[in-house]
Every structure is written in structure tokens, then in C-alpha cells.
């Protein structure tokens, strides 16, 4: 089975970490949960959320107060679009994202499979004098 065929389906987040060059792992959102779907027809949809998010007082998802929306945005990430494999590279071509800067972007990841887990890693990022990657460990959703 090709990596492309292996990736198709829905995955649950088992671990999400920033991994520094010395191996230090830092979770961007402690206790995060996530669901990522890769469809056979080439679409992907990723949602990652922190624990203990606070409900809005009102009943309009797009009508939150400044405080409510700031909290909601600081604890969740969701984006979708097309996906394709190029060798071991997984490309997400983002069509829509709650984070507007990613719309239209092509994001390159590497993938590897260990048993029933998929590990999706960003290319190295350098910021503030440090080089790190973000790693998503996924298990198949049942």
C-alpha cells in the first residue's frame, strides 16, 4: 500500500509538539485534541483544539465578544483544502483556514508511518535564533 493510500481516512491527534534541535518537546496547546481527514478524492480538513475552551454567552458563533473570540482563536486551529503526496512529502494546499494568512498557501510536510500511527512533521522553522519543527502524531479514528 502506498503512503498516499495509507493516509486516506480520518485520524485522531495523539500528540502535537514543537520539537527543538535538542529534542525538547513543547505542546502548543496542552491537552489538545484533533481530527484530520484525508479523502480519497484529494481533500483534507484539519482541526486542532486545546482543552477547556469556554462557551460563548450568546448563540451566534460569529457574534462572540472580543474576549470570547480571542479565547476561541487562541485555543483552536482549523484549515482545509487539497492534499497530494510528492515522494515522502505531503503537500496541503490550503483553501480556507480560520487563520487567514494560510489561505492559498502550500504547506509542505513529511510523513512516516510507525505501526498504526502516522507522524506528520513540518519542515524546519527558524525563529528567534532557534530551529525547530512541529510534529503531529496521529492514530486512526474509529
Amino acid at each position: 500500500m502506498s503512503d498516499k493510500d495509507k493516509l486516506v481516512g480520518t485520524w485522531r491527534l495523539a500528540d502535537w509538539a514543537r520539537v527543538d534541535a535538542d529534542g525538547t518537546r513543547t505542546p502548543p496547546l496542552p491537552g489538545a485534541a484533533g481530527l484530520i481527514t484525508y479523502t480519497a478524492d484529494g481533500f483534507m480538513f484539519a482541526t486542532l483544539m486545546g482543552a477547556n475552551r469556554k462557551p460563548f454567552a450568546g448563540f451566534d458563533p460569529m457574534g462572540g465578544t472580543a474576549e470570547e473570540t480571542h479565547h476561541a482563536m487562541s485555543t483552536a486551529l482549523s484549515y482545509c483544502g487539497r492534499w497530494r503526496m510528492e515522494g515522502d512529502r505531503l503537500i496541503h494546499k490550503v483553501e480556507l483556514s480560520i487563520f487567514p494568512n494560510w489561505v492559498g498557501a502550500e504547506m509542505t510536510r513529511t510523513t512516516r508511518f510507525e505501526g498504526d500511527r502516522a507522524i506528520v512533521t513540518t519542515l524546519p522553522i527558524t525563529d528567534g535564533g532557534k530551529t525547530f519543527v512541529f510534529e503531529l502524531v496521529l492514530t486512526r479514528a474509529r
Binding site: 487562541s74 482545509c80 480560520i98 487563520f99 494560510w102 489561505v103
Partner: peptide
């Protein structure tokens, strides 16, 4: 939708976050 000044999806200012949330709705299950 606009854009955030920074590159951290979780690190937007209150104004940026409010604009993003007021123009987008997403759920999965």
C-alpha cells in the same frame, strides 16, 4: 477576513481574532 500581522495562528491580537471568528465557522464530527 484580512490577515494577521504575525505568523502564529494562535497568537493573533484581540482585534485580529475577532475579525477571524466573525467571518468563519467550522466544525467536525
Amino acid at each position: 477576513r484580512g490577515r494577521f500581522a504575525g505568523n502564529d495562528p494562535l497568537g493573533g491580537s484581540p482585534e485580529e481574532a475577532h475579525r477571524a471568528m466573525a467571518s468563519c465557522h467550522a466544525y467536525v464530527g
